[in-house]
């Protein structure tokens, strides 16, 4: 029985994630539509519920084109490299106190390490397409993702110091009284900015900046391979929103002792708020410029994150300050 669950569990998670991606795309289009005075997709299925399904079917039956001068092996490989880490990181995510696939000691580190592999996929895709726009997009992507990984990791060090563990379960357990968004507010701000950047979303969507690079690194991709890049992007939204919930919003813990709802429901509610925030930001902000993006990461976010670490250590270790923490 346990062996069966071991193999079946990931398959169920994959289906859940695919379902999430399907409706996250629809929700994004709906939310942005409402914000812009439109009603969003409403033609395919009732309330547009089958719109994404139709889009996916369209992508699947599309002709699979590979540019003549592309590096064919890498061209085919890159969507896979981009997608697989996005799904693999979900293994350590504690969705509720029961639902988790692996409970490894260095869960947070695992997430950060695996998720950076996607950059390689994007870079390879941009290079293998043999297209100048794709190359520029890939270069931007590599620069951006690597730069923002550092403040992203630094911003959560404060939490790690407070909890004394890299295990995501322990982090959630430690938030039973107060969520880390309150004591770690500086870390939270740095984290949310870097995570939006890691997700390649507005205002940091430079790798695929539509108005400059047409579509950036996936400009030559079509059909199923393109779908894989999109899938990777939205699975990352799933993963990153889950991580935000776990690290800062208390995971499955119920606020104010409202324990009449099960932990997983609280998780979904908090998670949805984070996802909505991402959509909301996308509908509002213009795109930042590439050199400003770098400056912002190294000159603003990193020092702030480091300051946050020092502040946390002081609060935790200096005897008379720990009283307030």
């Amino acid at each position: 029985m346990n062996t069966l669950l071991l193999y079946l569990g990931p398959v169920i998670l994959l289906l859940i994630v695919l379902g999430f991606v399907t409706y996250a795309i629809l929700a994004e289009r709906k939310v942005i539509g409402w914000i812009q005075g439109r009603i969003g997709p409403n033609q395919v299925g009732p309330w547009g519920l089958l719109q994404t399904v139709a889009d996916i079917v369209k992508l699947l039956i599309k002709e699979d084109t590979i540019p003549k001068n592309a590096d064919k092996t890498l061209f085919k490989l890159s969507p896979i490299i981009a997608f697989v880490p996005a799904f693999v990181v979900l293994a350590v995510m504690p969705f509720s106190s029961q639902i988790q696939f692996t409970d490894i000691g260095v869960g947070l580190l695992y997430y950060m390490a695996i998720s950076s592999i996607t950059t390689i996929g994007i870079l390879i895709g941009g290079w293998a397409s043999n297209n100048k726009y794709a190359l520029l997009g890939g270069m931007r992507s590599a620069a951006q993702m690597i730069s923002y990984e550092i403040p992203l990791v630094m911003s959560v060090v404060g939490i790690v110091l407070t909890v004394g563990s890299l295990n995501l379960n322990d982090i959630v357990e430690a938030q039973q009284k107060t969520w880390f968004i309150f004591p770690q507010i500086i870390g939270f701000v740095v984290f949310i900015i870097s995570s939006v950047s890691e997700l390649n979303r507005t205002p940091f969507d430079l790798p695929e900046a539509e108005s400059e690079l047409v579509a950036g690194y996936h400009v030559e991709y079509s059909g199923f391979r393109f779908a894989f890049f999109m899938l990777a992007e939205y699975v990352y939204i799933f993963a990153m929103s889950s991580l935000t919930t776990v690290l800062f919003l208390g995971g499955w813990n119920a606020p104010f002792g409202f324990t009449f709802l099960p932990g997983i429901v609280w998780f979904i509610i908090k998670f949805s708020v984070v996802v909505f925030f991402l959509y909301w930001v996308r509908a509002t902000m213009p795109r930042i410029r590439v050199d400003q993006l770098m400056q912002f990461a190294w000159k603003v976010l990193l020092p702030v994150a480091l300051a946050n670490i020092i502040l946390t250590t002081l609060l935790k270790e200096v005897p008379f300050l720990t009283h307030y923490y």
Binding site: T202, P203, S211, P286, R287
Partner: peptide
């Protein structure tokens, strides 16, 4: 212009 810079909503508000 804002669409060029990357913001989508002002474009639709302006057209509205």
């Amino acid at each position: 212009y804002l669409l060029d810079i990357g913001a989508m909503s002002p474009f639709l508000y302006a057209f509205r």
